[in-house]
């Protein structure tokens, strides 16, 4: 398991994607699947940075990278505002996206389309923990 820390700033998005990409390459994940994990992780981190209320000068978030039997699991932890992933504001489906053509608010929908499971926990020490699970078929 590898854990990486990132500054809570939009400037961290490119390094996040580089880390996801390197991990997937080392783990033998096909490029197309890597693209799905990369985008899902990017959207989670964007939400933390933009809505977590954290200080870009001092606060970090972390990503644990794991390859389990037949799956890649990314665990993203932050100490920002508690959120409820299941009721986060987002378009609900492709039909709504076609109708509204939104400028924003697609992140949660996109994450759900691209990974197989999303598990959110608010830990006793007030850490937000979001697991992205992608099965490798």
């Amino acid at each position: 398991m590898a854990v990486k820390q990132f500054r809570c700033s939009l400037e961290s998005l490119a390094p996040v994607r580089e880390a996801v990409s390197s991990f997937c390459l080392e783990s033998g994940v096909p490029e197309v699947v890597e693209g799905e994990i990369e985008l899902a992780a990017n959207e989670v981190c964007t939400n933390i940075i933009e809505h977590g209320g954290l200080d870009p000068a001092h606060d970090n978030f972390s990503i644990d990278f794991e390859k389990e039997s037949g799956a890649v699991v990314l665990t993203i932890r932050d100490r920002g505002k508690r959120y409820d992933f299941n009721s986060a504001k987002s378009i609900k489906n492709t039909k709504e996206m076609h109708k509204k053509r939104p400028r924003s608010g697609m992140g949660v929908f996109i994450i759900r389309q691209l990974v197989d499971a999303v598990i959110y926990n608010h830990l006793p020490d007030k850490t937000n923990e979001l697991k992205l699970v992608k099965y490798l078929k």
């Binding site: 964007t46 939104p102 992140g107």
Partner: peptide
């Protein structure tokens, strides 16, 4: 990312209203 996709989607209506189009070419497989 969704931010970039949203930029394209947000102008699609204006483009279509003006009998234009937004066409993507050579999109990488990923």
């Amino acid at each position: 990312s969704s931010s970039g996709m949203g930029v394209f989607m947000s102008i699609e209506d204006e483009i279509l209203e003006n009998r234009g189009g937004l066409k993507f070419v050579a999109v990488p497989q990923k």
